[in-house]
Every structure is written in C-alpha cells, then in structure tokens.
Design a protein around this nucleic acid. Sequence first.
DNA 1: ACCCAGGAAATTC
DNA 2: GAATTTCATGGG
Length: 273
Amino acid sequence: MDTIIIDNIKDFNLQQTLECGQCFRWDMVKENSYNGVVLNKAVNATLNNGALTITGCCHSHKDFWLDYFDLKADYGKIRHDLSLIHPTLKEAATYAPGIRILNQDKWEALCSFIISQNNNIPRIKGIISRLCGEFGNKISDNAYTFPTPQELKNVTIDDLQPLRSGFRAKYIVDAVEKVNSGEVCLDRITTLPLPEAREQLIKIKGVGVKVADCTLLYGMHRLECFPIDVWMRRAMEVLFPNVAPEDFGQYAGIAQQYIFHYSRMNPTLFEEK
DNA sequence: ACCCAGGAAATTC
DNA sequence: GAATTTCATGGG
C-alpha cells in the first residue's frame, strides 16, 4: 500500500476542513485522522505537526492530493486579506483558520448538494453512503466509489428507493439523464462565466441557485461563489447587515465557508433577543 | 404530537 | 409576480 507524505503545511486542519459541511464522505477514525473515498481510492489522511500522510493512494500522484486539499494556495495570505474586509469576517476566519476548500469531483458535488436540500448533514451522509453502496464499486471492506452518471444510466425512482432520499430521488434521476445526454456538460460548465454556469446547472430539476453555487464552489473550485442557505441568510442579516456577497471579492467562497462554520458552531448568535 | 433540516417546485394569492 | 405550501424521511 502506497503512502504519500506532504510536509510543512500551514493553515490546515482536517477536522475543520472535512467537517465544515463541504463534503460528506470522510469519517474521523481518531483525532487528526480520517478515512474517506476520493474518486476510486479508499484512503486515510492523517495530519500531525504540519505533515499530512495519505495511505491507500495507489496509482495517484502527490500533485493530485495537493490539488484535492488545495494545499498550493496560501490560505494565510487569503485569510489576512479577507480579514481586512470586515472585523466579523476576521473573527470567523480566526475561529477556524484550518479550513480549506476541497477540489471534489464535479458530479459527486452536484449529486451530494441535490441530496442536501431541506435535509440535515447526518442524513445527507447516510443517503450518499447508501447511494455508493447500492450503485458504486466496492473497493475495500467497507468502501464504495461514488457512482458515475454512466453507472447510474437509466436508473429509476424505484431503483433509488433503498436510499430513502424521499422527494429528491426524482432530482437525482433528472441529473443523471441530463448529464448522460450531454444536455448539461459539467466539464464545460467549469470554465463558463458564472451567470451562464449557473444557468446551465439550474436546467436540472431540483437544482436552484444555492445547489448550483455549491456545485461550482466545491466541485469546480469557483472560489468567487457564495452559496446562501438558511444559515448564511441569517448570518448575513445578523452579522453583516450592510454587506453584499460581492464585497468579499474573488475569495468570497472561502469567506462563506468561514462564516458558515462559525455560525453553525455558535448558534446562540442568532437566538431571538 | 410537533418541529426542523446547507431548498426547490408547485400552488395560491 | 410575490408569498406560501408541499415535498419524504429521520432525529430531537
């Protein structure tokens, strides 16, 4: 089993990155150590003293993991620049300085955030886990790949019943159909200007602006995207009353993740006075 | 029993 | 058109 070590990493914490709501396929096995499935690899990631060790990553390159965890970017500098924009953003960024925006698979991000709507994180993880178990490929004892659109070709709502995803099943079916037919081309959307990229994604039933923005930010690394859900709406009203998302600039998506995580960890900020 | 959950579609006003 | 209801399912 192959191992990759990346050392000298700053501004990185696995718990903050993997449990901030951007991904659903990593589980803590102990402090600073997580098991997850990325593409077709079941891996463990462990971070100690700025050194990240990834095991189980056969046939993959170190460069892939630098990209996946966004380790090439200088988050210290980004956090510094964001902190100048607003004092509360500085507070949120300082609260979890180890968050990084992952480079996840586009299709997995799209599907995962379709499932996320009007749902809670533990159940989202359960539905995705069952989706992979039913339709993905078994790659180790308890690990399955995320099924590709090709592998889900011609899937029906009835086929998806074991997921217990409720009304979202028909949205998954529509996403599979539109991606397979080429009506929606995820590779092309990646580099499209934001309004057109959103417009394309929203052609899929069950995809609105929020799910589209999550797909763009977490699956296509469009860091200027600022997904607004119920938490972010409240956070903007209460913590940033006179600020527009555009004010956060080219790294608005990173700002959003700092604010989202900070808000979820401090729900009392939003209790009625 | 009731309420809510990283929303969006359907319906009503 | 804007505001409200509904949509499955599970947990607190």
